[in-house]
Structure formats: structure tokens, C-alpha cells
Nucleic acid binder design. Structure first.
Lengths: 125, 125
DNA sequence: ACCATTGTACTATAACAATGGTACAATAGA
DNA sequence: TCTATTGTACCATTGTTATAGTACAATGGT
């Protein structure tokens, strides 16, 4: 499976932040599933035309976050898709998150319909 | 009128990029109108707790872009209102917005399916 | 036991971003 | 004309980001 990870060297957003975001997004979108192996730091560096150190730092950061697990000589794997806090807290946080997202979207001039459509298109791929 | 310009020192997005974006957004949103004066570089630097050089560089960049005009000893003024963004620009911004939202959602532990469901439930009411 | 693969840990270097500071140039107004 | 205000242009310094390169540690397979 070819991962749709990309970075834009000309973006003001640093490469490490772009890559971290892309990986998180791939997990949420279901492109990366529990137990899936990520490309090796060296391979991904080649694929994205960036430095291996940058990839390694992103992996290390995501591991600190509990999303990944790295095993020397083996590779890097997805170990957490979602935490499991209490249902009620979770729902409340989801509500807050969606509210915040919607207010931002409104400021940016996007409609709820557009967002749903775009989310669905991501789900489909 | 107090301008709603803010920057986040902890964001990976550099301050100058945040400020440039915030000003463009304020113009598009109609908060800054044609002919309006912006805060002085020194004043805005104080307001945002950043360096005056950073503000000056943002103003200079926006002037190169034709959005602003600066007059020594007088101030900085809006001289061009952005045309409505093209479809392509809009789609690109939507992409970026969704990418950002999904990476945040991942950190919060929400899945794409949950988000879509919740958005739909809002749409229904 | 050996070896290739993978992640980790360094070092050094360069470019960029941001700060603090100083000085200068142009303008408006007293 | 004088002065305060505003933008501009420097400089030196600091921290971050990214690169290139090397070496080492742990693992799995031969």
C-alpha cells in the first residue's frame, strides 16, 4: 500500500510538523490501521526527499505521544488508534471539538455541507 | 476598532506567517476596509508581544503583494481588497483546514467516522 | 555466529526566524 | 524650523529547522 504522505518544502510550516500531521491524518482516515508498519525512516526520507533525521524525529515524537511503537531492527508500527476515556467525557470533548471546528470553519468561510462532503471523500479513499 | 489579530508563540507556524495570514483574513472578512490604517509596527509589536522587526517584515511583504501601502511618518494602509478567492484557492484552503482538523482529531482520539456522524447530526437539527 | 536491516545518537554545518538594539529617513503638525 | 511619529535598515545574538554524515544498538533471518 502506497501511503499518501507528502510534504511541501516551500510551506512555512516546518517539514516535521507537516509530516506529523499527515501521519495523524492517515490514522484517523483509516489508511493506517492498528499494527500497520510505517515506512522505515530511511525509506520515507528517500520517498519524501527529506532527511532521515527529520523522519526519525517525527517518529520519536509520535511514539512519545503513544501513537507509534518503534522496534529496533524491525520497524515502526501503529499501536493506538484511539484512547478510551469514559464515554461521557469523550462525548463532551467531541462536542467541544466539533463546536470549535465549526466556528473556525465559519470564519474561514466553509459551510457544514462542504466539510461533510470533504470528510466523506477522505473516508472513501 | 480593536483588531482581532493574534499570534501563537507555540505554534510551529512562524509568527510572520501567522500574522500575514491574520491580516489577509481580516481584510477578506471585512474587518479591515479599503483605506483603513493598520497599527504602527511598534504598536502592533507591543500588542502582540513580538518584535517590531517581525511586524515590519510582514508589512513589507504585504506591500510587495500590493495589499498595503506604507507611508513614512504616516502609517500603513489597506489599498487593495482581495478579490473573492478562486475555486482552486478555496479548495486548497479547505484541504488544509480539513488536514489540520483531522490531525487535531487524532490527537484528541476521535475517528473520522465519529466526526462525520456528529457533523451530520448537527446538520439534521 | 554472522550479517543485513532498522532505529538511535551523535557531530557539524547552514539557513531561517525572532529578538533587542541603534540609527536614519520621511512626514505631519505645532 | 523643530519635534514627535512612522517606516526602514542595519547589526549581533539566540534558538529552531533541516541537512549530511558517522557510528552504534537491537533485532531477525540465514
Amino acid at each position: 500500500m502506497k501511503l499518501p504522505l507528502t510534504v511541501d518544502l516551500k510551506s512555512p510550516l516546518p517539514i516535521y510538523a507537516q509530516l506529523e500531521r499527515a501521519i495523524r491524518q492517515a490514522v484517523v482516515a483509516g489508511i493506517l490501521k492498528l499494527g500497520d508498519q510505517l515506512p522505515t525512516v530511511r525509506q520515507l526520507a528517500v520517498d519524501l526527499s527529506i532527511n532521515a533525521n527529520t523522519v526519525a524525529k517525527v517518529y520519536a515524537s509520535l511514539e512519545r505521544d503513544g501513537l507509534l511503537e518503534t522496534r529496533r531492527g524491525v520497524g515502526t508500527f501503529i499501536v493506538r488508534i484511539q484512547p478510551a476515556p469514559s464515554r461521557r467525557d469523550r462525548l463532551k470533548r467531541l462536542e467541544e471539538f466539533v463546536a470549535k471546528t465549526l466556528s473556525e470553519a465559519q470564519r474561514e468561510g466553509f459551510t457544514l455541507e462542504e466539510l461533510i462532503e470533504y470528510f466523506k471523500s477522505i473516508q472513501r479513499r
